[in-house]
Amino acid sequence: MNSSATTLKNWFEQGGQAYARFRPEYPPELAAYLASVAPDRRLAVDVGCGNGQLTKHLAAHFSTVVGLDPSGDQITHAVPQENVSYDSAPAEALPLPGRCASLITAAQAAHWFDLPKFYSEARRVAVPNAILALISYGVLCLGGPLGARFEQFYCHEIGPYWPAERKLVDSGYATLDFPFTELEGPSIAIHLEWCLEEFLGYVSTWSAVRSAKESGREEVLHRFATDLAELWGDRAIRHSITWPINMRIGQL
């Protein structure tokens, strides 16, 4: 292993702080679109909010925003904002009164929910004609030899360690039961330019990486990091990365 790769050997040993630092940011136009279809802009609720990647953008469009996540570690890393409050709570038991929310979102989170219970809670807290949006971003696109090596890693090397729920994300939630009057959202994508350590930091947040490590398969992770470091060029070079955003948007 060369010296450059050696310095990366523990790239996947990250926690909630890495999740906050390396998870891709949603583009502001996503929150703007969601606000445009909500019946009013009084209260938006972001369920499974993580450290607030979408929550903070909703704050620009709603008087009040509530971010909820069962992980206290994630909530700890959310950035405070004047009109945003965060709390630890599961999607199936929202700590909110009835008929209060104009927009309910779940970004990169709905595949973990007990959907019937979550939908029941969403109906309970929604104002008439409120919007429910299940949002996910698909597998990243990276060009050239880097993209080919990433695809091999994603599909064949780390693939067996993904939980079954990952297939729902890869399909854009297309197969999820969604018993609402559905709206067709616009085409939106996440576009970023990352250096090598930012890219590997993002991969380190994957549940599949944690599973591979717990299964004693760290060599798969180290080999990928080494190969990518060799293909990347100077580690400070920024390569363009794109994630397509998928949405299931319903009116309650």
Score class of each variant (00 low, 15 high):
L115F: 02
L115M: 08
P116V: 02
P116L: 02
P116E: 02
K117R: 13
K117W: 05
Y119Q: 00
S120I: 05
S120D: 14
E121Y: 05
E121S: 09
R123V: 03
R124K: 09
V125L: 03
V125Q: 02
A126E: 12
A126R: 07
V127H: 06
V127Q: 10
P128M: 10
P128V: 12
P128A: 08
N129P: 00
N129M: 04
A130W: 03
L132S: 01
A133E: 01
L134D: 03
L134K: 01
S136E: 10
S136I: 07
Y137N: 03
Y137K: 01
G138K: 04
G138E: 00
V139C: 12
C141V: 15
C141A: 15
G144M: 01
G144S: 07
G144K: 04
G144Q: 06
P145T: 05
P145K: 03
L146N: 09
L146R: 14
L146W: 14
G147V: 05
G147K: 06
A148I: 06
R149T: 07
R149A: 08
F150E: 06
F150L: 09
F150H: 04
E151G: 12
E151F: 09
Q152M: 11
F153P: 08
Y154I: 00
Y154G: 00
C155S: 15
C155K: 15
E157L: 07
E157I: 11
E157V: 13
G159I: 01
G159N: 06
G159Q: 02
G159M: 02
G159F: 03
Y161L: 06
Y161I: 02
Y161N: 04
E165A: 08
R166Q: 10
R166Y: 05
R166K: 13
R166M: 06
R166L: 12
R166F: 07
K167G: 12
V169N: 12
V169R: 11
V169T: 14
S171F: 04
T175I: 14
T175M: 11
L176W: 11
D177S: 06
D177P: 04
D177F: 03
F178D: 00
F178P: 01
F178R: 00
P179E: 11
P179Q: 09
E182Q: 15
E182L: 13
L183N: 13
P186L: 05
P186V: 02
P186N: 03
S187F: 13
S187D: 15
S187L: 13
I188N: 00
I188D: 02
I188A: 05
A189T: 13
A189H: 14
A189E: 15
I190E: 03
H191K: 13
H191V: 14
L192S: 13
L192E: 15
L192D: 13
E193K: 09
E193Y: 05
W194T: 10
W194H: 11
C195Q: 06
C195E: 05
C195H: 04
L196G: 02
E197F: 04
E198H: 14
F199M: 03
L200R: 04
L200Q: 08
G201L: 00
S204K: 06
W206K: 04
A208V: 05
V209P: 00
R210S: 12
R210M: 07
A212W: 08
A212S: 12
